[in-house]
Amino acid sequence: MLRVHFTAGDMARTRVADGPDPLWESVLSLHRLQAPDREPALADWRGHVLRHAAPSLRLLLPLVPSRGYFPDFLTPPQGSEGFEAGLDGLLGTPRRQLRGQMERLGLERPPCPWARSVAEGSAPVMRRLGAALRDFRRVALGASWHGVRSGTEADRAWRARVQWYSGTAAMLQTFGPGIRWQPPVLECDYPADKDLHLDGRGLLLVPSYFCRRTPVALADPALPPTLVYPARNTVRHRRRTADRAAGEHLARLLGHTRAAVLQSVGGNCTTTELARRAGVSLSSASEHAAVLRDSHLITSTRECNTVRHALTPIALALLDGHPAAVIPSPGGAGNHAALHGRPAPATGDRP
């Protein structure tokens, strides 16, 4: 078990990342390639990567075993700023850290000549490692990155919104059985028994598409505290019968077309994308989006000449079948009638 110890200052400094970290996703996708439980949903992706990224895999797999320790320098904090920024941070790792982390990796598996050369950290070797990571990301995540982002966006937006309206403690209670908030400690199912004291630094929570079952943290407690966790939208084991029941429930509540529009929003999309996904006209998608927005089921933000829509916590709860997860939204109750396109009756002061 991993126990993350919070202080009052840590509660104020804890936040959910703006999206998936490309270097964490690269490393965790290497885990998925080696996993004994081959997920059917990833079969095509896995075959594509094995066919087209073989040269990169020969250099990367010795650094990222299928389980256990992997070096922290592969997932530097600069990765939150994008792949190239993260890669610059990785390539700038001090040689002392490289040597220490590679020595620790060598305790769990005999080092190959390539791993020993990485431990030395010469410029040519690090450039070769950077080229392998860049090539692997292009093959494994390049065409899939939009799906990775959309697969984590609904989770990220939901938890950030819970934190905004109800506070950090409420957000830490949203993770479910594998990550439990027992104030002032966050208990996480973990393959090793360890304690992480934040000491006022706060915690960065990073939703991940490729993370499975248990969260992942950096091994060195001196590094910026980070917890990478499986995003809810990436869980692929929902029963089809449960999905059908949820769809029927939404159709009774919203009507078939509006339910289809709500289910088509995904993590984030424009009105044009929404119309295409739901199979309706652009004007119809715009009208349904307006009703869903007035009912606090989606939020809409304008970016230049486009409008982007995202699900709210209430919508996520409806789609996931977890009504207990609903938190109060701005405007409170009184919007049930608006779900069907009718104005809601006037209510008193907003909370």
Results as ranks from 00 to 15, higher is better:
W164M: 11
R240H: 11
R252W: 14
P62Q: 13
A219P: 02
A290P: 03
I314Q: 06
V162Q: 01
W158N: 09
P113H: 15
C269H: 06
A310N: 07
A41G: 09
F175G: 06
V125K: 05
M171H: 05
Y190E: 06
A169P: 02
L253S: 05
Y229N: 02
L23G: 10
A43T: 15
E187R: 11
V280G: 14
A242N: 13
V27M: 05
Y190P: 00
H309Y: 06
R240S: 12
R128N: 10
D243K: 09
L339F: 14
S117I: 10
L204I: 00
E187V: 05
R134A: 05
P110Y: 15
A242P: 08
G68S: 04
W114A: 11
R58N: 00
T174H: 01
L203N: 01
R149Q: 14
R240Q: 15
A246Q: 06
V326I: 07
N305C: 02
R127Q: 09
F6H: 00
T226V: 07
V206S: 08
D72N: 15
W181K: 04
R239I: 03
F70L: 11
L274H: 04
A119Q: 01
L61V: 10
Y190V: 04
R109T: 12
R149V: 13
V235R: 14
P330R: 03
A337V: 08
A85S: 07
P328V: 00
A344E: 08
A143M: 13
G82N: 13
G348M: 04
P343D: 09
D243Q: 11
G92Y: 07
P191I: 01
G68H: 10
T75N: 03
G121I: 00
I298W: 00
T7D: 09
L218K: 06
A289P: 02
V16D: 01
N305I: 02
I179V: 14
D72C: 11
P207Y: 07
A278N: 07
R258Q: 04
E39R: 15
C112W: 12
E108A: 14
P313L: 00
T301E: 14
L98W: 07
E25Y: 04
S150H: 09
L250G: 00
C211S: 14
L262V: 05
V265K: 00
V228E: 06
H288S: 10
P313W: 02
R240K: 12
V307F: 02
V148Q: 04
L196C: 05
H146E: 15
S66E: 09
Y209M: 13
T234G: 12
G47W: 01
E39T: 14
R128C: 05
F175M: 01
T241L: 08
V235K: 10
V228A: 15
R3K: 04
V265N: 04
F175V: 08
A160C: 09
L61Q: 06
L91K: 11
N335A: 15
G266F: 05
A154Q: 03
W24I: 00
P221C: 08
T271K: 15
W24E: 07
T234N: 12
V118E: 00
H288D: 14
P77E: 11
R350F: 09
V216C: 12
Y165N: 14
P184D: 07
Y209G: 03
